[in-house]
């Protein structure tokens, strides 16, 4: 059964479909919440999925499931990371470029240098393949802020990385 068909069946009260939908969504949300919430990743996935299943009856377009769940996961992962105070720098740092991320030996070390919001932009851009404008919209951050931050980021991140 497709994910959209599982949504429809779950909305009609079939808890076996909910069970299958959970199996389908967990790895996807795990890839989003893991890099944003780091050590609180399991909590973030749990909270994101609870929000998904509580609000499932209100999802009008079953085909929009993944985009809808992704937005919830990003929001919950940032919230849980902030709650657990695993915030990297006190001041929001600059985002590393895609090349820097790809060249990093230890991606976790890169992530730990960033705030949860920046990690979220990075995940949306480098894991989900969204452009920065879409990522900024999803995070309710002004596009200009994200773009200028990214433009400033490249040099300063490399410096920090090489030091």
């Amino acid at each position: 059964m497709s994910a959209a068909a599982l949504v429809v069946a779950a909305q009609r009260g079939d808890t076996m479909a909910m069970n299958d939908l959970l199996r389908e969504l967990t790895p996807y949300l795990g890839r989003i919440c893991g890099p944003i919430a780091l050590d609180s990743g399991q909590d973030a996935v749990q909270e994101a999925l609870i929000a998904v299943f509580r609000n499932l009856p209100a999802l009008r377009e079953p085909d929009a499931l993944y985009g809808w769940a992704r937005a919830i996961a990003v929001r919950e992962a940032v919230r849980i990371a902030r709650r657990d105070n695993r915030v990297g720098p006190a001041e929001p740092g600059d985002l590393p470029s895609r090349q820097d991320v790809e060249g990093a030996v230890d991606i976790r070390d890169v992530l730990e240098r960033l705030t949860p919001e920046h990690r979220a932009v990075l995940v949306l851009r480098d894991v989900e393949g969204l452009d920065e404008a879409t990522a900024a919209r999803l995070l309710a951050v002004p596009v200009g802020t994200v773009k200028s931050r990214l433009a400033r980021a490249r040099l300063s991140f490399r410096k920090a990385w090489q030091s």
Binding site: L22, T26, P27, L29, G30, R31, C33, G34, P35, A37, L38, G41, Q42, A44, V45, Q46, L49, I50, F53, I107, R108, L111, V123, V127
Partner: peptide, 14 residues
Amino acid sequence: WPVADLDPVRRLRV
């Protein structure tokens, strides 16, 4: 990239 998983008890809560 770090990936988060869910243990069965957390899945039941969900």
